[in-house]
Amino acid sequence: MKHKVLEVNDLTIIYRTLEGNVHAVDDVSFSIEKGESLCLVGESGSGKSTIALAIMRALPPNAKILRGEIILNGKDLLRMDEKEFSKIRGKELSIIFQDPAASFNPLFTVGETISDVLKYKLGINDKKKIKEIALRALKEAGLPDVERVYNSYPHELSGGMLQRASIAIAISVNPSLLIADEPTTMLDVTLQAQILETLKDLKDRLGLSILFVTHNLGVAAFICDKTLIVYAGRALEYGSTEEILKRPLHPYTRKLLKSVPRIGAKREKLPFIPGSLPDLRNPPRGCIFAPRCEEAREICFKVRPKMLEYHPGHYVACHKYSEGNWG
C-alpha cells in the first residue's frame, strides 16, 4: 500500500451566522496518496473552499469543526497546537489561491515575499542562497525572465505571471501536499490551459501530491487522478477520475458531465442544472440532491444514503445503487 499523505475522515463543519448554522461540510471523507492528485468538484457554494481552508487551518472565525480528522503524514492537524502547526503551515502544506493578483501584497516585490517565505520556512539566512533558490523556483514554475519577475511589484505583472509566482512560492518549500483552490478560474482561457499544463508537469516531475478544487470536471479530467464530487457540503461520488468520467453513477455527476465546459472553450460557464442548492441552514432530511433529482423517489426524501463501494474503488451515495431500496 502506498503512503497516504492526507486522510480526511468524517469532516463536518458549520458556519455560525445570525440566521442560524450553515451546514457547509457534512461528513466528508477522502484521502490522497503520495504523488497523487485529487479534485474536489462541485458547483459554487458546495463547500469546496471550506474543506481546503479547514486543511490549512485558516477557516473564518465563525466556522466550527464539529467532527472529523484531518491527518497529514500521520498527524492529526486538528489536534495540534498552533505552535506545532505553524511548522507545518507553508512547509509540509502549501497553497495557491484563486485570485493571483490579490495574493500578493502590493507594496512588496515578488522577490521580497518569496524570500521571506524561504527564509522562515527553510531556515536559510544567506541572502544570495535564498535568491538562488527563489529564482530556480520561479523558473520551475514556467516563468521567463525570472530576474525581472523577482524584482517586480505585483501590479507590474500579469495575472498569469503572478499565478506562476505563487506556484513558485508553494513548490519552493517542497510541500507534501499542495492545495490549489480554483487556481485558474480568474485567468483567461489560454492561460488556464498553460497553468494547468505547468501544474501537471510539476506533479509528474516532482511527485507532488495535490488537492485541486474546481467546479469543472474537464479540469479534473486533465489533472486529477481521483475525484470527489461534492454537493451542498456532502460527498456524492468518489473514485478515480477516469472511472467517474467513463461510468458516472450519481445522477448529479451525470448532470455535471453533460454540462462540462471544455478547457480552452470560449467562456467557462457554471454547469447548468435546473434548480439551486438547498438552504444549508436547514438541509433536507434525506438525500441532499433529491429536490433537484429527476430520478428521486420517496425514500430519497426520507433517508440519507450512505457512501457505498459500488465498484472496487468507486463510491457513490445514492439509493439507486443499494439493493432493495430501488424496487
Binding site: A102, N105, S166
Partner: peptide, 16 residues
C-alpha cells in the same frame, strides 16, 4: 485581505 491570509498560509510568521 487575501494577501495577508496568503502570507500566513505561505508560512511567513504572524509577527512578520
Amino acid at each position: 485581505e487575501q494577501h495577508f491570509r496568503a502570507s500566513i498560509a505561505w508560512g511567513i510568521p504572524k509577527r512578520t
